[in-house]
Design a protein around this nucleic acid. Sequence first.
DNA 1: GTGTGTGAAGGGTTTCACAGCA
DNA 2: TGCTGTGAAACCCTTCACACAC
Lengths: 210, 210
Amino acid sequence: MSKRKISESTIRRLSKYYRSLERLIQEGQSTVSSEELAAMDGITSAQVRKDLSFFGTFGKRGLGYDTRALKEQIAEILGLNRKWNVAIIGAGNIGRALAKYGEFEKQGFQIKLILDSDPEKIGQEIRGIRVEDYRKARELLQKENIEIAIIAVPAQAAQSVADLVVEAGIRAILNFAPCSLHVPPHVQVRNENMAIEMESLSYFLTNSES
Amino acid sequence: MSKRKISESTIRRLSKYYRSLERLIQEGQSTVSSEELAAMDGITSAQVRKDLSFFGTFGKRGLGYDTRALKEQIAEILGLNRKWNVAIIGAGNIGRALAKYGEFEKQGFQIKLILDSDPEKIGQEIRGIRVEDYRKARELLQKENIEIAIIAVPAQAAQSVADLVVEAGIRAILNFAPCSLHVPPHVQVRNENMAIEMESLSYFLTNSES
DNA sequence: GTGTGTGAAGGGTTTCACAGCA
DNA sequence: TGCTGTGAAACCCTTCACACAC
């Protein structure tokens, strides 16, 4: 496995290939070409081959890729062959929906902890997990060995939550608050900012010939 | 306004500037430099100036930008000075959370219609909006003049929903299903794929020196 | 003096096109 | 023959650096 810097877009595409491969396997397909895989995600076959080539040579010339083997390789690359402990911070609409959302667990992202500062919400159970007091965050994040924090609080609270989880040793954050977070370089943040996507659609609707 | 092709990343950054400007205005700041705006979103000042320069010259040399005027200009560019009619398709965890999420309405994205095919859910009210029968989708999308469809159904149903809304004349889709959608070129799709973000975090946790 | 607007340079990602192997 | 793996080319986006306006 090369030590070259792999681009974020390559990683994101690997996620897509992974899901496409899952589907192909489920449909009983044992082999796939870069062309076919590309078509499934609306990209080019050269892109698929280049993405995979950063990590090794998984295909057979003239034949394509073995679906099961390739899925396994990608799982290995992405670190999906293990479980990750996840905390959701903020038990509002979004936080609760994520806690109930089954997809995460399926991929090995286990929701171990839900935190909120609203006394009304503390003590409620979501999918068998008790909402805990945000004031105990540091202690509980460490006790539960949380590795990934999902921030689902209002924008004005998001930075202070980020500061706290970074303090507690978290190195990966998924941020649903519509604002940029400032974190040290060893911490990874991914943003799930629905406002940006909606406004991007608004721009294209506004600026396309109707 | 130039007819040059503006990149998606520029548009996404404009959304960020817009939110940063809102905050500055709220804090009573009347002027901002590209340097300061850049710092708020963790990018470079040259990037801010270049992004804005695609659309006009909004700043004053030696002074910076007027916060209110610039916010207004960006609203104009992104098409935020009007209301958009939005439908949510799928009243599961995610769909319901989005319907209740206040941020959309604030920015002019009005949820006019919620659809689901589950008889249990049809007839329920979410924030004063009745969940309607998915079988009436075509008719209702047109009647309510829907312009943007939010797809919040399971992956295996997402493509058929996309086909239907495209058929009904929708040209903008926000897709929460963890799969790629195939649509004609005149239709814009944005993906809000939490699995990809989580897996990207997983990759970086796995491949960083602990 | 200060900070914008922008051509040019630089860097990175995607596409091309083909050698090489099953 | 068919499809991968990959250098080279093309393309796009970001950063630099400075003329210029306030």
